[in-house]
Design a protein around this nucleic acid. Structure first.
Lengths: 338, 338
DNA sequence: CTGAAAGCGCTTACAG
DNA sequence: CTGAAAGCGCTTACAG
């Protein structure tokens, strides 16, 4: 029997057909099978099935005061890392019975707050903020005790803001691992290029890297660091690498704070016919899956974005259960290519 | 004055403070300024502002029978093209006052239908289906007259399904353009590799390509075509290229039905030390923004994904206004690198 | 075991 | 110009 399109079936439709009250149908539809006679239960269950009754989530949300919707706020989705987080989070939420609203904050406090407001109006059940930026709305949201999970970038500073749960990697340690690799490979004083340090993730990577190099006896002032505030990391990498090279020539080894920046730096090398990794050993962070296919010259710290989703949902559920916020650090690992 | 966290403000909160009925507050909050005395209007507007009243969208949706939420169903977000569509659609929806729920269908009919059902329960105001797959739920949805916009991939065949609006490029013509380029470059009989032809986008590209080559007098049987049903286009490209080369050596020119497939094919070439584009000229489709940075060996048909969002929202709005479904073909163009 | 009633926050014809 | 009332579809204490 083909199931064609039909009009919506509500509790009252079923109640009328079965000759019982909506209360009874509601209870049975919600699985309270011991609050009605077995006959009634059987009859209603059958009707629910044949008529394909599906509860109106809007009405349910209004009544219960909570929805099955979780908001994900993230900057630029066109970044592959962001896509991987969105993908895994969506899958994990779905598995847990939730649905995800996606908001692109463009890394701007204003937009982030505007979305936080809109999501609040939607009575979303939780907030996943990827690469959060410091803002009043975020501070209020967290301080109000709403279920918030920060991902990728640690909590930005804001006066009197409470702590929120976190999912990400240990970026300091990732930076240190990259430094180790370059040092081990014979690079005495590796350089580093990075995007805006207002991102705690970037700042941590750079700090971990520098500390590790310094620990081998290198004077801090000898480590060349160049930043670019360009939001687009491809462009940021291109500009920062140009500056770096102009001011002191090519380093033997270079940490790029993200793979996208490494791609930008690669273009500078190509334009100057500098061999990578022969003349300059480059390490990125993210381990974009494309590296294995088209960037065989790039080593990179793998960040398990595909595992973020599950961890994020666990953090949300902990929050719903009333647990205090905690950090969840996922393992990273260096992928070497040369 | 710092605005701290506070409890929700409802119409009745304001009504009580102002000593008027909720009806009056509702009207004014909804901009019906000529249905109350100027004094009342001023007083209410001020309260709305100072208390930061924001209508509860859930309650409003229930009452009005429609929401401000649009569902986007798409396969694997980790594909950069999908990310670009999601990004631009989200931005265009936001500009129009809507919010986007994102659902990952994994290119599976079952999941697609499950999400269609869930979105219907949410009373979403419209559906954007990127790379739709043939399914009962989709057919019902469209036939019921719901606002549906298909993107990227044309409408799949299904018995008695009505037509839906579409946004995408002319894939036949894109395939023909790729063929032209290879022919012009001196490749007499270019080959093609592709993923599953059940995607109309892929099938159209291949058909347009073959027709164009045949039109120069080449016998159809001489054109080598190899497909792979692997969902991951990187892997599909790798496998298809391997098969192609094993069965007849490297062609002088090759169309890969997507950039991701081209990346897969590139790895085969690299492993065999075959020079690209020197020995084999490769054309992809999508023009992934990364090409300019790390795939200087790849020519590609640019697909304006960043423009899809706006076109999609226009199609949705046309549908809401009662217009019949139409096709919206966006311009593509070949980007040459060698 | 079952149902009548209240209420979630809003909108909107209707009456005055 | 303003308000009382009904109702969107559901859930849930309460009464019987």
């Amino acid at each position: 029997m083909r199931k064609g399109p039909r009009a919506r079936v509500s509790l009252s439709t079923i109640a009328a057909k079965a000759g019982v009250s909506v209360s009874t149908v509601s209870r049975i539809a919600n699985g309270q099978l011991h609050r009605a006679s077995p006959q009634t239960v059987a009859r209603i269950k059958k009707l629910v099935h044949t008529l394909d009754y599906r509860p109106d989530t809007i009405a349910r949300s209004l009544r219960r005061g909570e929805s099955q919707v979780v908001a994900m706020l993230a900057p630029n989705l066109d970044n592959p890392a962001m896509g991987a987080i969105a993908q895994s989070t969506e899958a994990a939420l779905r598995a847990a019975g939730y649905v995800m609203i996606l908001c692109d904050t463009h890394d701007e406090a204003r937009l982030q707050d505007s979305y936080i407001g809109a999501m609040r109006d939607q009575h979303v059940k939780g907030y996943v903020v990827v690469s959060a930026v410091a803002s009043q709305g975020l501070a209020d949201l967290i301080s109000r005790g709403e279920p918030v999970v920060l991902a990728g970038r640690r909590q930005p500073k804001w006066p009197r803001m409470r702590r929120a749960a976190f999912v990400g990697i240990d970026n300091r340690s990732a930076g240190a691992d990259a430094a180790d690799f370059l040092l081990r490979s014979g690079v005495e004083v590796p350089a580093v290029i990075h995007a805006s340090l207002s991102s705690t993730a970037i700042a941590d990577r750079v700090a971990g890297f520098v500390d590790r190099v310094v620990s081998t006896g290198v004077k801090p002032s000898r480590i060349r660091k160049v930043g670019s505030n360009h939001l687009q990391h491809l462009q940021a990498g291109y500009e920062a690498a140009q500056t770096l090279v102009r001011d002191g020539g090519w380093p033997r080894g270079l940490l790029c704070a993200s793979d996208m920046m490494a791609y930008g730096a690669y273009r500078v090398a190509r334009e100057a016919s500098v061999d990578v990794p022969g003349q300059c050993l480059i390490v990125g962070v993210d381990e974009n899956p494309l590296n294995a296919w088209i960037a065989p010259w790039l080593s990179s710290v793998h960040v398990p974005y595909e595992a973020f989703g599950e961890a994020i949902v666990e953090q949300l559920q902990a929050s719903w259960a009333g647990a205090p916020p905690s950090d969840r650090l996922l393992p990273h690992r260096l992928v070497i290519r040369r």
